[in-house]
Design a binder for these strands. Structure first.
Lengths: 132, 132, 132, 132
DNA sequence: GTGGTCTAGACCACC
DNA sequence: GTGGTCTAGACCACA
């Protein structure tokens, strides 16, 4: 009990999901950082602890942490652990903005190919905004 | 040569693309149908002709046609070839609508996580609509 | 041996080196690309073949290829293999320029802390240029 | 407090740095000696004082002092403390010269692989000398 | 055949 | 205790 991670509330890491497990872990950590529940300098759960918590292999967790480190969201230090970088939240926010822009581009492209007018698309966006 | 496909103008089928080759072929055919360049009853190029045209293995083309048939976009007749179904264009339009809706959902989700307001997102959509 | 890689002449991959094996493989491939012995579109040896050639675990080779892909030097396609990107050589050249500039900065900093004059440092560079 | 170290102005000792903590301490002491702020016979802060000042474990400081002693930069006397050796500054200067030479070697190697001429490299060195 | 993912378990360096 | 590297070997998707 005392050794379980009380910081991260990882969403459902599911082997049934089409996304690789390590990407699900990456996404979960980024969600925590984006939401501010993990701030600069905060320690992530150790590889072994998170591995035990999520019932996922240590190596899979390590792979996720490596990707987060490459993305500049965390840094790892031998013997110490892994920590959120200063720029982490900003980088994730940038990724999200790119993702949102790309999604809008796809929505417009697909919608127009399907014969939707600009008004149709704007209406769909309003519906989506109201729904969530 | 009269044996080359003069109907389909396949976009670039490239091994450098992250998408599997057969999915690229599927997408290319659907694009032709959605755009009306292939109508109900029209014949698709034969497996061998398309294989030669695209410099892609016959097995890959066969797999693409199988997926198109599963999707109800084409039907195959032993010895005659493959033809666009009556419902083909409608099904593809439905797929495109689903795709547009899903993209809008992602845009809203990502944008909000990045701190965007509804106005910000609506503005980005307007920009996108104006640009294309 | 038809199954051995006749393209890459990997330098000495040594377990005695302080550098991780996968980094040695990364460096070896980059050397081939920088020297033009591997050009855009050229296929790298398959993971299994290179693993057998270098007597290094398949997984270690895979890790090296993953890093090369992240660096934009190669791209991998399931079922096809790994290939050099168009921009590969340019990226590596950029890395090398950065490395050279950084090394000069360190040389100046260390040399000055050791009491060397600018003339001393320029002389050492001339010696180095003449020696290699 | 009179018990804090007023001799060493250690640069930023940070767990965010990729270098191990004890190496950062070693480097900081060597910097003080190379700059002449710590001369032969001068006493270093006690293990406990430096540990408290840098907010670093006593074991880490001890390990750093052991390395400095192995390098012949300081010597320790039971119950008295640690002191800079006569030869300390000279040894560090030697290390710096080796470092400068090695950096020049790397600069030449990398620059040539990137296609730079000798003139290019000499020009880059001049720029670096002028900038700092 | 190819690469992509996941796992189990070794050994090492650092703190 | 921590993360870093290397290995062996499974199973899957794609061509």
């Amino acid at each position: 009990m005392g050794s379980s991670s009380n910081i991260l509330r990882f969403g459902p890491i599911s082997i049934a999901s089409p996304a690789p497990l390590y990407e699900q872990v990456v996404a979960a950590v980024k969600r925590e950082v984006a939401a501010g529940r993990l701030g600069p300098g905060d320690a992530l759960p150790s590889l072994r602890v998170l591995s035990a918590d999520l019932l996922v292999s240590l190596i899979t967790i390590k792979r996720a942490y490596e990707e987060l480190e490459r993305d500049g969201v965390i840094y790892s230090r031998q013997g110490l652990g892994a920590f959120v970088t200063e720029a982490g939240a900003g980088r994730i926010r940038g990724e999200l903005l790119v993702r949102a822009g790309e999604a809008l581009r796809i929505a417009v492209e697909s919608g127009r190919q399907a014969g939707l007018s600009d008004r149709n698309l704007a209406g769909m966006l309003r519906t989506e905004l109201a729904a969530h």
